[in-house]
Amino acid sequence: MRKLVLFLTIMFMTMSYGQETKQIPQINVNGEGKVKVAPDQVCISATVETKGNNAKDVKKQNDEKIDAVLKFIKKMNLPAADFKTKQVALNPQYDYEKKKTSYNATQTVEIVLKDLSKYDELMEGLVQQGINRIDRVSFESSKLTSLQSEARKLAMKDAKAKAEDYVSVLGQKVGKAYVISDNSQIYHPQPMYAAMKSMAADNAESANETLAIGEIEITANVSVSFILD
């Protein structure tokens, strides 16, 4: 009886192993989809930084500068939802050589500008009102989600076209997709643009062009395994 049970166990294991190792005729290809679009908004992160020997005075000066910056932004008629302050800090800094403590106050304002024609005016005004550190300028598209979807579809079409090219000479056909892997990387596109003009320029009416926005390129990459019919 034990020999019979052992024999049946080995037989079932052999059958299962045979099923697991059965090869499925397939082809593995990579596909890429690209979509280009002009950005329609710019995200700006700018900071007011104030230093001094008296904590109270440093904080007061920094608050006054931020207040002036916010009033300027409001005068440009930006919607309240498109700007906000964050990262308020007041930190002591000890100088071991002079054996003195100074203070550093910072406050950051984040802005989404949806009218790119106001970019130069906004940047100049921010600096004039007290912004002394531009942390980030990123040109983006408000339609990024739909553009990413379009790029993914193009990547799948590209993968299928490649598979069909390869198997066409073999007299076979591309069947259903067996495995799909998304190899795309999430990133914040920043097209090349010229450096903005000096904020200290004497001629504020200068007509020189300072911004070359270019295009954002949205890319999707996939790996697909198709079953061969």
Rank of each mutant, 00 (worst) to 15 (best):
Q129E: 15
M199G: 15
N30M: 13
A220W: 07
Y94P: 01
D165P: 01
T101E: 12
S146W: 00
S168A: 15
E32P: 00
I186H: 11
Y187W: 05
T21C: 09
D82H: 10
P39M: 07
Y193P: 00
Y166I: 15
P79G: 03
D40A: 03
K22R: 14
A161D: 11
E164H: 01
I10H: 02
Q128W: 11
A105W: 06
V224I: 13
T210H: 02
S184L: 07
E205C: 01
Y119N: 12
L170F: 14
E64I: 12
A80Y: 07
E124H: 12
N62L: 03
P39S: 06
K197Y: 02
P189D: 08
Q172W: 08
A105D: 03
D95T: 08
V29P: 06
L126A: 05
A207L: 12
N104Y: 11
Q128T: 12
T85K: 07
K74T: 14
A105V: 04
I216L: 07
S102E: 10
L8R: 07
D67G: 11
L6C: 05
L113P: 02
A38W: 01
K143Y: 10
L78N: 02
P39R: 04
I27M: 07
C43Y: 11
K153V: 11
V29T: 10
I44H: 02
R2W: 07
Q148W: 05
M15Q: 06
A151C: 05
K173D: 09
V88A: 14
N62W: 01
V112H: 02
K56W: 00
T85W: 00
T106K: 15
I216S: 06
Y178D: 15
M76Q: 15
V69G: 09
S117F: 03
K153Q: 14
N53M: 13
A38Q: 13
G171D: 03
I227A: 10
K84Q: 09
D182A: 09
F72D: 10
E49D: 13
L126M: 05
Y193V: 08
K153D: 13
T85H: 01
D40H: 04
V35T: 04
Q190L: 07
S181H: 10
I27T: 09
D82N: 15
A161F: 03
L122Q: 11
V137R: 08
Y187N: 14
G171A: 05
T101Q: 13
F83I: 05
L170G: 10
I227D: 02
N104G: 00
